Amino acid sequence: MDVLSDVITVARTGRPRSAYVRWHAPWGQRFASVPGSAGFQVILEGSCWVLSPDADPLRLGAGDVLFLPHGSGHTLTDDPARPVTAPACTPDDAGPSGPHASDRVDRSGLGGPVTVVLCGAYRLDPSRAHPLLRTLPDLIHLPADPGRHPELHAAVRLLAAEVDTPRLGTGATVPALLDTLLVYVLRIWFAEQPTRGSTTGWAAALDDPAVTAALDAVHRDPAEPWTVAKLAAEAGLSRAAFARRFSALIGQPPLGYLTWWRMTTAARLLRATEAPLRSIAAQVGYTSEFAFAHAFKRTHGTAPGAYRREGS
């Protein structure tokens, strides 16, 4: 596993949800702030405006992708000057029975121009949120550009077709395509961040081959008895140079990140599997169940068994 793949796998919980909505002008819809979630809006046809509390109105056109990694509240409307009085919807009630794979919603107005939006949400576990996700802005806008990001637009087309016309296997296809869409959005955003001369931050870290090599090693095998020297060898740097560079970019020392990732992985395994504690301890690099339990409680504030019961 690479860093980005693991970030998504560990942080997301439950099934992503989506809906295909046709808006007929005049229209406006408020989307409530939902901490612990990430949302997206893809404009498939027509245009609209997105209004958010801390930004100027932004016009969206067909093919534009809007990603809200922190579940921030926002409004979509055909006219930024139009008052929106409808109650704010959440990821659980965007469609007639919630935005599942088969939701296709027609919101009729007065017969004006049509805007078609593919919207959806991912549930995230705040206790397993990766610092990479925390560095993202409240709103990420990827404008439509036929000559760029063909893989993103291909995923959008496939997803829109499945949600618009559910068929045999749609229930399995839509969650996979939603995860693919999320990967492409994050990959593009990080790839396009200006990192030249930057000495901190995850965008710079993912653009640094040495630090990325060490991160991939940790994520590939968290049970390995890693030391700073062994990670430096993965990075192709001296021990001191590697430790300085890793700490500067990531914001914590290599072994501090290793422990955090092991405990985050353990938290997911405790909630997502029925594996015994000794097995989970071994998977994250602990030969002693007692040592694992002590490290877990120090990180999460509760014992592994209690953490598992709380999530059941």
Rank of each mutant, 00 (worst) to 15 (best):
T9S: 00
V10C: 00
A11Y: 00
R12E: 05
R12V: 00
S18K: 01
P35L: 10
G39F: 03
G39T: 05
V42R: 02
I43V: 15
I43P: 04
L44F: 07
G46R: 11
S47I: 08
W49M: 15
P57A: 15
P57M: 14
H70V: 06
T75H: 07
D78N: 14
A81N: 15
A81E: 15
R82K: 14
T85G: 03
A86N: 14
C89V: 12
T90V: 11
P96Y: 11
G98Y: 05
R107M: 12
G111P: 03
V114N: 05
L118M: 08
D125K: 03
D125Q: 06
R128K: 12
A129F: 07
L133R: 05
P137T: 10
H141W: 14
P146N: 09
H153I: 05
R157H: 08
R157K: 08
A160E: 08
T165H: 08
P166I: 00
P166N: 03
G169D: 10
G169E: 12
T170N: 03
G171N: 03
T180S: 09
L181E: 03
L182I: 02
V185R: 02
L206R: 02
D208P: 01
P209R: 11
A210Y: 11
A210W: 08
L215A: 01
D221L: 04
P222L: 02
A223K: 01
E224R: 06
P225I: 00
W226A: 00
W226V: 01
T227L: 04
R245M: 09
P253D: 10
G256I: 04
A266D: 01
A267Q: 07
E274M: 10
L277H: 04
R278E: 14
I280M: 09
A282S: 10
G285C: 03
S288K: 04
F292W: 07
F292E: 03
H294W: 15
K297C: 15
H300L: 15
P304K: 13
A306C: 13
R308I: 07
G311I: 03
